[in-house]
Simulated scan of single mutants.
Amino acid sequence: MSDKKIRYKAKIAGKNYTIIGARSQKHLQLVEQTVDEQLRQIEALTSGLDPERRAVLAAVNAVSDQIEMQINMQKMEKEIEELKQKLRESNMEHVD
C-alpha cells in the first residue's frame, strides 16, 4: 500500500461519491462494487426502509463481518503459536 492518496469517483446506490484514500484504484473499485451490491441486497429485503437506514444496516453488517474476521484471525494466530511451540518441543526431543 502506498502513502500517496488518490481520488476515486464512485457511484453507489445511484449517487456519486469521491473516495480519497491510499489504496489502489482496483481496491477502491472492489469496495465500490461490494458496497453497491450490499445496498441493493438490503433494499430488496427491506423495501420499506429509507436509504439512510439501509446504509446503517450495511455499516452494521460490515462491522459485524470485520469483528468476526478479527476473531478468526486471533484464533489462527493462537493456533500458529501452538504449532510453533509443538515444533520447537519436537525439535528439542530429537536433539536429546
Rank of each mutant, 00 (worst) to 15 (best):
D65P: 04
I19R: 03
E89T: 07
N61M: 07
Y8E: 00
K15G: 02
M73G: 03
K26Y: 07
K78F: 09
V95N: 10
R40P: 06
I71M: 10
I19N: 03
I80N: 05
G21I: 02
Q74H: 11
V56H: 03
G48M: 07
S64H: 13
A44N: 13
Q33H: 11
L30I: 10
L30F: 08
A22C: 02
V95G: 07
L49E: 13
G48E: 12
R53D: 09
L83W: 03
V95M: 14
M76L: 15
A44K: 12
E82L: 13
K75E: 13
S2V: 04
K11Q: 11
A10Y: 00
A13R: 01
Y8G: 01
A55T: 09
M73Y: 06
K26V: 12
A62K: 03
S24M: 04
I6P: 05
H27V: 08
M92I: 14
E52I: 15
V31Q: 05
L87V: 10
L57E: 10
G21T: 02
L45T: 14
Q66N: 14
S90E: 14
S24T: 11
T18I: 06
I80D: 01
E68N: 10
Y17K: 03
Y8V: 00
D96N: 14
G21A: 07
Q66E: 14
I12F: 02
R40N: 15
L49D: 14
S24A: 10
N91D: 10
V35R: 01
L83A: 12
E77V: 12
E43R: 12
K11H: 10
Q74L: 14
I12L: 01
A55C: 13
Q70S: 13
A22V: 01
D50N: 12
Q41K: 14
A13V: 02
R53W: 06
M1A: 07
P51D: 05
I20E: 07
V60D: 02
Q70F: 06
K86F: 00
Q25D: 15
S47P: 15
G21C: 02
R53N: 10
A10E: 01
L57I: 15
G48T: 06
Q33N: 15
Q25W: 06
I67Y: 07
D65W: 08
G48P: 03
D3C: 04
Q41S: 13
L83Y: 08
I71Q: 12
R53C: 06
P51Y: 05
S2K: 09
L87G: 00
T34W: 02
I6L: 08
G14T: 01
D65H: 14
E43I: 06
S64F: 09
R23V: 07
E89S: 10
D3F: 09
N61E: 08
P51W: 02
D3W: 08
A10W: 00
I67F: 05
T18Q: 03
Q70T: 07
L49Q: 11
L30E: 14
Q66M: 12
N91F: 07
V63P: 01
N72G: 09
R88P: 07
N61W: 06
L87A: 06
Q29F: 11
S2E: 09
Q29T: 13
M1W: 03
L39I: 10
S47G: 15
L28S: 02
